[in-house]
């Protein structure tokens, strides 16, 4: 006698062969790796040393693009949250989560390179510069996002709350971008547009010295290729974990 109840009755898509990592992602990974190498060459070799700061300014080619990359990833979180609340499709929540984790990594790269750069130019690893402080607070906000997720048991509630919080958290990212315009007492230089009076460590991007080209290449790599590749991997990982728990549930149901 077989009761008509089992998980297998609930229709579940089950592809015959699940490719853990799609081919396109492998190709993109290769491209990104080459890009990172080429970007390093452009930053460390191709571009001429800065006239006032010397070699240390080269760290800028990673420092700023990494922040833009974090911005892109956090923007993906906001988009993912918005789309999740509209469509209730789990994939958007996965994108949002991937955005937070990748954004945190890139923001950490930005922060660490900034600190390394600050030591010779500002004479300290850490200063209570508004932008620096805000960036640290921004990272903690996204850390709070992860804590919030972890403290909700029900998956639907977790996705919903994460979507709301992820959309609100973008405010902090925007503040980091805007702060040097709002608080004139920052010592952080502004590359595009006028820097504040107190800014220390300013420099001019000299196109003829290959500096603009180096920035352009690294921008493409760190602000576009790296975040997209990492987020894609994170989404693949998430799909695999979800599939695993589904299979486990089915096994337990037997």
């Amino acid at each position: 006698m077989r009761a008509n109840l089992s998980l297998s009755d609930v229709s579940l898509e089950q592809p015959a062969l699940v490719r853990a990592i799609p081919r396109a992602l492998l190709a993109l990974t290769a491209l990104t790796l080459i890009g990172v190498g080429f970007g390093l060459y452009m930053a460390l070799g191709f571009a001429k040393a800065d006239a006032t700061q010397g070699e240390v300014q080269r760290i800028f080619y990673i420092h700023m693009p990494a922040f833009i990359g974090a911005f892109v990833a956090f923007a993906a979180t906001t988009l993912g949250g918005f789309m999740y609340l509209r469509t209730r499709q789990v994939k958007w929540d996965t994108l949002a989560l991937a955005g937070v984790e990748v954004g945190l990594v890139l923001a950490a790269i930005n922060l660490v390179t900034g600190m390394i750069w600050a030591k010779p130019t500002w004479n300290a690893w850490w200063t209570w510069d508004p932008r620096l402080t805000l960036e640290a607070i921004m990272m903690l906000t996204y850390a709070a996002y992860l804590v919030l997720r972890a403290s909700i048991t029900n998956a639907e509630t977790r996705r919903r709350f994460a979507a709301v919080y992820g959309m609100l958290a973008i405010i902090l990212v925007i503040m980091v971008v805007m702060i040097s315009r709002i608080r004139p007492d920052t010592i952080h230089p502004t590359v595009f547009g006028p820097s504040s009076q107190q800014a220390r460590g300013t420099f001019e991007l000299d196109a003829s010295a290959g500096m603009s080209a180096a920035l352009g290449v690294n921008m493409l790599v760190w602000a576009v290729l790296v975040p997209i590749t990492l987020m894609w991997f994170r989404i693949c990982l998430n799909n695999l974990t979800e599939r695993l728990s589904l299979l486990k549930a089915r096994l337990a149901d037997r």
Partner: peptide, 12 residues
């Protein structure tokens, strides 16, 4: 009525 919590079907 069907309802699934995460991967666990509650109503089938």
């Amino acid at each position: 009525l069907t309802k699934t919590f995460d991967v666990l079907p509650v109503l089938r």
